[in-house]
Amino acid sequence: PKDQAKKEIEKALRNGDEEKAKRLAKKYGISDDDWKELKKRVS
């Protein structure tokens, strides 16, 4: 599910692991808009 994916990506971003977050986003098909939203929430 997308919500689970977003949680994992957000966690990776919080850990400062943007490479992992990007890989997860690609793997789960997270859209650019969702990606920006996640980045905003974390920063």
Rank of each mutant, 00 (worst) to 15 (best):
K7P: 03
N15V: 09
A25R: 08
D32E: 12
A5S: 05
K36P: 02
V42L: 10
I9K: 00
N15D: 15
K39P: 02
V42Q: 04
A12N: 02
Q4L: 13
K27N: 05
D32K: 07
P1G: 12
L13Q: 01
R41W: 07
K7E: 11
A12Y: 09
A12Q: 04
Q4V: 11
E10C: 07
A25Y: 04
K6P: 03
D34Y: 04
Y28S: 03
K22D: 03
G29H: 08
D34N: 03
K11H: 13
R14N: 04
K2S: 14
S31N: 07
D33R: 07
K26W: 08
R14Y: 05
D34W: 06
D34A: 07
L38V: 05
K22Y: 12
K39H: 06
E19W: 10
E37G: 04
A5E: 11
R23T: 11
R23V: 09
K26T: 09
E37V: 04
A12H: 08
K39G: 02
R14I: 06
K2Q: 14
D33F: 05
E10I: 15
E18F: 11
Q4T: 10
D17K: 05
S43H: 13
G16Q: 04
V42W: 05
D17G: 02
L38F: 04
D32G: 07
I9G: 00
L24M: 05
G16N: 07
K11Q: 15
P1N: 13
W35H: 01
D32A: 09
K6M: 15
K36E: 15
A25S: 04
E18N: 07
E8A: 09
E10V: 13
K11G: 08
D17I: 02
A25W: 03
E10T: 08
D33M: 07
W35S: 01
K2T: 14
I30G: 00
K39D: 02
Q4P: 06
D3I: 10
R41P: 03
K20V: 08
K40M: 09
D3F: 10
K26M: 13
V42T: 07
K7W: 14
K2N: 15
K27M: 13
W35P: 00
L24F: 03
W35K: 01
K36Q: 14
G29Y: 04
E19D: 11
K36S: 08
G16I: 02
D3W: 13
R23D: 09
K27S: 06
A12V: 05
D17T: 02
E10N: 03
L38Y: 03
E8M: 12
A5T: 04
A21F: 01
E18R: 04
W35F: 15
K40P: 02
A5G: 09
A21W: 01
Y28A: 05
D3C: 08
D34E: 15
K7C: 13
D33W: 05
K20F: 14
Y28F: 09
K2R: 11
K40I: 09
A21D: 00
I30E: 00
K20P: 02
K27A: 09
K11I: 12
D34S: 03
G29F: 05
K36W: 15
K22I: 12
K20I: 08
A21G: 03
A5W: 14
E37H: 04
E19Q: 11
E37I: 06
G16V: 02
I30Q: 01
R23S: 10
L13W: 02
E19L: 10
K26Y: 08
E18H: 08
E18S: 05
D32P: 08
K22S: 06
S31V: 03
Y28Q: 02
K7D: 10
K22T: 06
A5Q: 14
W35M: 11
E8G: 03
E37D: 06
N15W: 07
A25I: 02
K39E: 06
E19M: 10
K40Y: 10
E18W: 12
I30S: 01
G29I: 03
P1D: 14
A25M: 05
K2V: 13
G29V: 03
N15I: 09
V42D: 02
D3R: 08
D33C: 05
D34T: 06
G16R: 05
I30P: 00
S43K: 10
E8V: 06
D34Q: 07
K39M: 11
K6S: 08
A5L: 08
S31P: 04
V42E: 03
K36V: 10
E19I: 10
W35C: 03
V42G: 03
R14C: 11
K26D: 08
K20Y: 15
E19A: 12
K7H: 09
A12C: 08
D32I: 07
D32T: 06
I9P: 00
L24Q: 01
S43D: 15
D33S: 09
I9Y: 01
E19H: 08
D32R: 06
R41I: 13
K7F: 11
V42C: 09
I9F: 01
E8R: 08
E19G: 08
W35V: 06
K26S: 08
V42F: 11
Y28G: 02
A12I: 06
E18D: 06
K36F: 13
N15H: 10
I30K: 00
D33V: 07
K6D: 04
W35T: 01
L38I: 15
I30T: 02
K6H: 13
K20Q: 12
R41A: 14
L24D: 01
R41V: 10
K20A: 12
Q4F: 14
K22L: 15
P1W: 12
D3E: 12
K26L: 13
V42K: 03
E10H: 04
R14P: 00
E8K: 06
R14H: 05
S43N: 13
E8Y: 07
S43T: 11
A25G: 03
E10W: 08
A21H: 00
P1E: 13
R14S: 04
I9N: 00
S31Y: 02
A5M: 10
I30A: 01
R41Y: 06
R41L: 15
L13A: 01
A12F: 08
D33Q: 10
N15P: 00
A5D: 06
A21N: 00
D3Y: 11
V42M: 07
V42N: 05
